[in-house]
Design a protein around this nucleic acid. Structure first.
Length: 430
DNA sequence: TCTGGGGTCCTAGGACCC
DNA sequence: TCTGGGGTCCTAGGACCC
């Protein structure tokens, strides 16, 4: 049985408020105080909203077409997602955080855990206020900070700091009395605990576990049986026992996926092949950037499960005879995969490629064990990667990926790439 | 007309081996 | 009559995260 120790170092989670919506505002101050929403790929669902948009009743995950009335009525500003912009702003924020702690874990595009080992409780709050103000001043993005003894508790503090204006964006529950922590846990619904999703919420509520506090009192054995060791870890963390450590080194990916919904339905194998070829190219680029080669490639496709038209979904796992990082070679296997699973007569909505079974690439060995051909392929690939990096990802591409790509993703309301494209530098008015 | 994309971890169960 | 048991590897599926 694990017990709580006295001196866990404080951990803070810094989380950007309504990140994508806030990014759109950075270069467009007219949007301040106005409702803003940002759409997923293909302009499908809402993935980020400003507080004003939440206030008129729009929710995360709503399909755009279902909230069109609200959008019109309240004059909501709608944007297609602009990942290049968000990624660049994210990078600036993370760099800023690294000036405040030597130990930063970039957890997602809009969130980081930072270790504040060595700080006294009293100074922690002030320090985190300074972080918050610096990010706002330098980058223009509002963030909230939660500080606690474990990551899971820091997420709870963060959430309360964000929701309740009286905390002004920073809540520090590190080192306070247990009965005070309990008060915060009692006002946190169990569904808002990090690690508790839809399914577990249903199960927990059925068993009369309604708040984060209730969950700390749950029976360990029951939790492990019903929620695996992951669930048990969450319970310990809520009790103040750290089980999830801070990981500042970025681990290599164990899987790389590239998949997309089409901008319209696709019926022909030729167009499916074009898209799979393009997605294989993208996935292979990502894989090479971490110097991996893969043994396994999965191709999958599916119709639209929301439609009443005939449904079909399938995937195939292709084993490569030799681990490969060559786009040319991977495309040829992916095409064989498509031929295996494609069926005529369906309206396809989405396809994707997943790479797994990674091994480190060691080019020096290529010549020893493999044909001359492979070395040549590697050179072509390297050249393409370099040119595409330098001149943009569409400089050189495989003809098999299609040229017109009329099946491509919809993105009709995209903001300019203010920070990464000279053509789009914002104008300064005198 | 219109419902995202990219990841992680854990577990059960089958195949295979001795 | 009676059909082991333990270990490992792999995969599919289900849960979660943002």
């Amino acid at each position: 049985m694990k017990t709580k120790s006295q001196n866990n170092p404080p951990v803070a989670v810094v989380d950007c408020n309504n990140f994508y919506a806030s990014c759109e505002r950075v270069f467009n101050p007219k949007l301040l105080g106005k409702p803003v929403v940002v759409l997923s790929n293909n302009d499908g669902i809402i993935v980020a909203l400003s507080n004003e948009a939440k206030a008129v009743g729009i929710k995360m995950g709503d399909p755009l077409f279902k909230v069109q009335d609200l959008v019109k009525k309240h004059d909501v500003n709608v944007f297609s997602s602009n990942y290049v912009l968000y990624g660049d702003i994210s990078h600036r924020i993370m760099t800023t955080l690294e000036q405040f702690s030597p130990n930063v874990e970039i957890y997602s595009i809009d969130e980081a855990f930072i270790s504040l080992e060595g700080f006294k409780r009293k100074n922690l709050t002030e320090y985190c206020r300074e972080i918050r103000e610096t990010v706002k001043k330098w980058i223009g993005i509002p963030v909230s900070v939660g500080i606690a003894e474990t990551k899971t508790l820091s997420k709870i503090a963060n959430r309360i700091a964000k929701k309740n204006p009286k905390y002004d964006g920073v809540l520090n529950i590190y080192g306070i009395a247990q009965n005070e922590i309990d008060e915060y846990l009692k006002i946190t619904d169990v569904s808002d605990v990090w690690g508790v999703g839809h399914q577990y919420t249903k199960l927990l509520k059925k068993n009369n576990i309604n708040t984060a506090y209730d969950l700390t009192k749950a029976n360990d054995k029951w939790v492990k049986n019903n929620m695996t060791v992951m669930g048990l870890r969450t319970v310990y963390e809520l009790r103040g026992i750290p089980c999830v450590s801070l990981e500042s080194a970025v681990p290599d990916k164990k899987a790389i996926i590239c998949s997309r919904s089409f901008g319209r339905y696709v019926e022909t194998i030729e167009e499916i092949k074009e898209s799979v070829s393009l997605f294989t190219t993208r996935a292979a680029e990502k894989m090479r950037s971490q110097n991996s080669a893969c043994r396994l490639l999965t191709v999958f496709l599916r119709t639209n499960p929301f439609k009443k038209t005939p449904q079909y979904h399938n995937g195939v796992l292709v084993h490569l005879p030799v681990p490969s990082d060559s786009t040319t070679e991977m495309i040829s296997y992916a095409m064989k995969g498509v031929e295996q699973i494609f069926r005529k007569g369906y309206l396809y909505q989405k396809v994707g490629v997943m790479l797994t079974g990674f091994e480190p690439v060691d080019r020096s060995q290529l010549g020893l064990f493999d044909s001359e051909d492979r070395i040549k392929m590697a050179k072509v690939t390297e050249t393409m990667d370099r040119l595409n990096l330098e001149f943009g990802s569409r400089t050189l591409f495989y003809a098999s990926s299609g040229i017109k790509r009329s099946w491509g993703t919809k993105s009709d309301m995209k903001s300019p790439q203010y920070t990464t494209d000279w053509e789009n530098l914002p104008e300064v008015s005198a």
